[in-house]
Computed example of a mutant assay.
Amino acid sequence: MRLIKGFIAVSILLGVVYSCSPLKKIESGKSVAMASYAEHNYLQAYEQLTALITSYQSAKLKVPVDILLKTADCAAQLKKYDVASDYFSQSLADSITMTGVKGYIENSKAGGNIDILASALNQYAIFLNENGEGRYLAKELFATALRTNDQESILKVYPDLEKPNEEESMAYLLALEKANKNKEALTFCNHLIKENPDYNRAKEWKAIYYYNLAEEGYKREMAKYNKNKNYTAYVYLKRDLKKVSANYRVAKGLFEDIRKQYPSEKKYIKYLKNIYLRLEMKREASAMEKLL
Rank of each mutant, 00 (worst) to 15 (best):
E130D: 08
Y46S: 02
L92Y: 06
S119G: 12
Q77C: 04
K70F: 02
I114S: 09
L128V: 07
Q77M: 01
Q123G: 01
L68S: 10
G112K: 00
E47Y: 14
I105V: 08
I105A: 01
S108R: 02
N122D: 09
G132N: 05
A93G: 06
K80N: 15
K60T: 06
Y56T: 08
A59G: 01
L121K: 10
I114A: 01
K80H: 11
Q90Y: 04
L121Y: 11
L121E: 06
A125K: 06
A118L: 02
Y46Q: 07
A45T: 05
E47T: 15
I116W: 08
L117S: 00
E130W: 04
A76L: 02
A75Y: 12
N107V: 10
N107R: 07
D86C: 05
A118V: 03
L78W: 13
Y104N: 05
L68P: 03
L49D: 06
K70R: 15
A120W: 05
V63C: 02
N107G: 14
L49E: 12
S119T: 12
S58Q: 02
Y56R: 02
T97G: 06
A45E: 10
V63Q: 00
S108I: 00
G132V: 12
D82H: 12
F127S: 13
I105H: 01
Q123K: 03
N129G: 07
Y87K: 03
A84R: 03
N122H: 02
N129Y: 06
Y56C: 10
Y56N: 08
V101F: 04
D86K: 12
Q57G: 08
Y46R: 05
S119N: 08
A76K: 07
L92F: 12
V65L: 01
L49H: 07
L61K: 14
E106C: 13
G100M: 05
K79G: 13
L128D: 06
L92C: 11
K102W: 02
I116G: 09
P64L: 05
T71I: 10
A75V: 12
N122W: 03
S55H: 14
T99M: 14
T50A: 13
N122T: 06
A120P: 03
Y87C: 11
K80V: 11
A75R: 14
Q48W: 07
